[in-house]
Computed example of a mutant assay.
Amino acid sequence: MNHHITAEFRLLDNVPEPKTKGVKSNVHSPHHRIEGVEYLCSGRHAYEDDNLHYPPEVLRTKVFFPSWQYIKDKILVGQKIQVSELDRVIGELIVLSVDSD
């Protein structure tokens, strides 16, 4: 799978409704709140294995954004991106590299 960024994904356990069913590579496509973008952006996560992962794990992930051409100028190395499933915050990305333009 092509990807646009590599990031550290922190699954949070200190949020009102932590993720309890786990996340799995290439199946998990949460929403991302990116500073400077006025809408939530979907993105597919690819983890280093196919296991289920739960809070408070920290995962290395590659993220593919279908709307990349509209958001690519808003994402920088070191940036924190809130990860949610609709209104429910489940984690945070820290951008390690921008791998595609």
Rank of each mutant, 00 (worst) to 15 (best):
R33M: 10
R33W: 07
R33K: 09
I34A: 03
I34E: 07
E35A: 15
E35D: 15
E35F: 06
E35H: 09
E35T: 09
G36L: 05
V37A: 02
V37Q: 00
V37N: 00
V37H: 00
E38H: 06
E38C: 11
E38T: 14
Y39S: 11
Y39W: 15
Y39R: 12
Y39F: 14
L40E: 10
L40V: 09
L40W: 02
C41N: 14
C41R: 09
S42G: 15
G43P: 01
G43I: 02
R44N: 15
R44H: 05
R44G: 11
H45S: 11
H45Q: 12
H45L: 13
A46H: 11
Y47Q: 08
Y47H: 13
E48N: 05
E48I: 08
E48P: 05
E48C: 15
E48V: 08
D49P: 10
D50N: 13
D50A: 13
D50K: 15
D50C: 10
D50L: 13
D50V: 06
D50Q: 14
N51I: 11
N51D: 13
L52C: 03
H53N: 06
Y54S: 08
Y54K: 07
Y54A: 08
Y54Q: 04
Y54W: 12
P55F: 12
P55L: 09
P56W: 01
P56L: 02
P56D: 06
P56K: 01
E57D: 15
E57T: 06
L59S: 03
L59G: 02
L59M: 03
L59R: 11
R60P: 01
R60Y: 12
T61A: 03
K62T: 05
K62G: 05
K62S: 12
V63P: 00
F64S: 12
F64W: 14
F64E: 12
F64Y: 06
F65D: 02
P66A: 06
P66G: 02
P66V: 08
P66M: 07
S67Y: 02
S67L: 13
S67C: 08
S67K: 12
S67G: 05
W68K: 07
W68I: 05
Q69K: 10
Q69V: 08
Y70Q: 08
Y70A: 08
Y70I: 10
I71T: 03
I71P: 02
K72V: 07
K72E: 09
K72L: 04
D73H: 11
D73A: 03
D73T: 13
D73K: 10
K74I: 06
K74Y: 10
I75A: 00
I75N: 00
I75R: 00
I75Q: 04
I75L: 04
L76R: 13
L76F: 15
L76A: 14
L76E: 08
L76K: 11
V77N: 06
